[in-house]
Nucleic acid binder design. Structure first.
Lengths: 144, 144
DNA sequence: ATATATAGTGGACAAAGTCCACTATAATGC
DNA sequence: GCATTATAGTGGACTTTGTCCACTATATAT
């Protein structure tokens, strides 16, 4: 088991990383979307005909809250809703051209943010960074 | 420079870790404090005679928001405010006995959360985890 | 056919945080 | 020393973000 000093270091890293993620996530640069809205838009972009409930479940959002976001998206011409063929209670969501473009922009910016974050690291350090992150990912998230 | 697949992996890790930190941070178990309130309490516990503005700056909180939290803390008997000797516009913050106890409890719980997180890892894996996190910390936060 | 579960929506509310204006005091530039 | 400018703390008003509940319509299970 890790000792007290190691635990403290982990908590310290978590504090720093919380702050960093907060900065990365906070109002994605130069777009009119909040972080959650951005996640919703990207979620819809991943595949066609996703339903509101799928979006809500995948992102662990309240369905009511999700409904309002989607309504806004529709109003702003980012998505369109069509009645579901399989389930007439439900609707299928798809990005409009404008929505697709915005999703692409978000995606590009998010990539760029990561690149900017690592810009000061040497090639070697970037490899180390990636290795270390992969290790954490495996230990924390990919087991069971 | 990292390639697209590596960038995607990093973004994926960040999403997972955002979620994990969100769970860890969300309403610290069995206490009446929100995450931000917890941070404020711990911040005050770090050393004596901290001023509100120091708390606000250190945690990057709005001073008005901080003021309200502190007012609540005082009302609930967690801290007391005494006029600053150095600057008569300001006050010095100190934990009461109850505040100290609660801060200790928060601290203990936060430690325990980390331990719980790692409980399923072997000794060897915990060492790897710590190593990897230390690497990230060094590369991201401890340079310059 | 009836009971139960689920999808989507909106009203009402709560929590968390921001912005602005104000008072009191401190620090700075002459 | 005096005028100007900056800073600490507070509260009002507001926004953003998210939660909870109730309701309608449809689907699924018995």
């Amino acid at each position: 088991m890790l000792n007290q000093s190691e635990i403290s270091s982990i908590r310290n890293f978590n504090r720093s990383y919380t702050k960093l993620l907060g900065i990365l996530n906070k109002r994605v640069l130069n777009t009119p979307l909040t972080w959650t809205e951005g996640r919703v838009l990207l979620e819809i972009s991943f595949n066609h005909d996703k339903t509101p409930i799928e979006v809500a479940n995948n992102l662990e959002l309240d369905k009511s809250y999700t409904s309002r976001i989607l309504k806004r998206f529709e109003k702003n011409g980012l998505i369109n809703k069509s009645p579901s063929a399989k389930d007439s209670r439900s609707v299928e969501l798809n990005l409009t051209t404008a929505g697709t473009e915005l999703a692409q922009e978000l995606d590009d910016r998010s990539d760029q943010q990561i690149k900017d974050l690592l810009i000061d690291l040497s090639e070697q350090e970037q490899k180390e960074f990636f290795q270390a992150m992969t290790t954490l990912n495996n230990l924390l998230f990919t087991r069971k």
